[in-house]
Amino acid sequence: MNRIAEFAVGLLFGWGLLVSGMTDPGKVVGFLDLAGAWDPSLAFVMGGAILVGLLGFTLAKKRTRSFLGAAMHLPTARDIDRRLVLGSLTFGAGWGLAGFCPGPALVAMGAGIPKAALFVVSMIAGMLLFELFERQRRARTQ
């Protein structure tokens, strides 16, 4: 039951990205280009998503188990540190450069777009680099 729900949620999220137009990097860059002809669509995507998300998370915060009986994995980190800010700034630079963030890139790869696949492979390489750097950092501090 849990596996079916996870698959269905992934599918629904992918449809949302496609319907919203966010799988088109041109639309994302159109939003990020404040000095050019500005396409505000992405703000409407975020607005719609957060409106529904607020209701969902308000309910979720009151629960100790999920409706399917799973443990609730709500984030516990509170610290606003250099890693968070520098990491997010780095992510934003890549996002602006290609117009892809992780979700839309995976969906566009699923649609068979070669540049999306190239992006996903590079993104996974970046994530593996992070794991490598983290392992080195842990080895140094031990």
Partner: peptide, 26 residues
Amino acid sequence: NFTPWSALAGGILLGLASAAFILLNG
């Protein structure tokens, strides 16, 4: 290129998926 309605509709689907994931799968 501005598509407010499909953006809003797609955004609502993203919100529904996010809400479903935390509520069903935690």
